[in-house]
């Protein structure tokens, strides 16, 4: 992690889209009126979802909306590395995990793919479609090596997989998230080896209980 600053080039203005605004209001409503600023992190998220990154006009707009000082929003936006302070690739933001388990499983090769196909890290690619970053552990070590692309985890990657995924994003497709070596989630490669008795999952072993108001248990009138 390096010093986080606002991007040098900023858009002239920012406006919440109607869809974002709806969600923003939902978040603000969760807190008492005098504690509106509690919604700052979710709203930064929503803004990033809308724009792809957090710009200075957006920070000012959030500050105004929540009745807090701009510097306070700025503090939050710079504290959390998940908030992008520079424009990111329009097709994909690729965050390759480079922490020890992924590194041991070959993340260096993934990083090389990114370098070759996209360019230097933390920089927008020349065509504006991609940004790639090396990040710390994303908590999917059992599927190492992995990368988070936009909102999803792409796991058990090989350089070839990743190259293909990048090509797919470049072509406007949405590659399937999850493990890329054929297994289901983090099960063993050839399928599960324990807890394979189907009776474990049909509820027959459980003591019958009544869950009040559980979905699906409404009495049919």
């Amino acid at each position: 992690m390096s010093v986080r600053r606002l991007a040098k080039e900023q858009p002239a203005s920012f406006a919440f889209s109607p869809e974002t605004m709806e969600k923003v209001n939902w978040w603000i409503a969760k807190y008492p009126e005098s504690r509106r600023q509690s919604a700052v992190i979710p709203i930064l998220w929503l803004v990033q979802k809308q724009e792809g990154w957090v710009s200075e006009p957006a920070i000012t707009a959030i500050a105004k909306l929540l009745g807090m000082a701009q510097i306070r929003v700025y503090e939050v936006a710079t504290f959390y590395t998940m908030f992008m302070l520079e424009p990111v690739g329009s097709a994909a933001l690729i965050q390759v995990c480079g922490t020890t388990p992924c590194m041991l499983r070959g993340s260096d090769a993934l990083i090389q793919v990114c370098k070759d196909k996209i360019g230097p890290k933390d920089k927008l690619s020349r065509d504006g479609k991609f940004t790639w970053q090396e990040v710390e552990c994303l908590g999917a070590c059992c599927n190492a090596p992995m990368a988070q692309i936009n909102d999803y985890y792409y796991e058990d990657l090989t350089p070839e997989n990743l190259a293909q995924i990048i090509d797919d994003f470049a072509a406007g497709k949405s590659p399937k998230p999850g493990p890329y070596n054929g297994r289901h989630t983090s099960e063993p490669l050839g399928g599960a080896t324990t807890l394979s008795d189907p009776a474990l999952y049909d509820g027959s072993a459980a003591k019958p209980i009544k869950i009040p108001n559980a979905p699906g248990t409404e009495v049919q009138a």
């Binding site: 390096s2 700025y74 710079t78 504290f79």
Partner: peptide, 12 residues
């Protein structure tokens, strides 16, 4: 005047 603050975190 709420104009000063601490940005980033940790060593930065």
């Amino acid at each position: 005047v709420t104009e000063m603050g601490m940005i980033s975190r940790g060593e930065n």
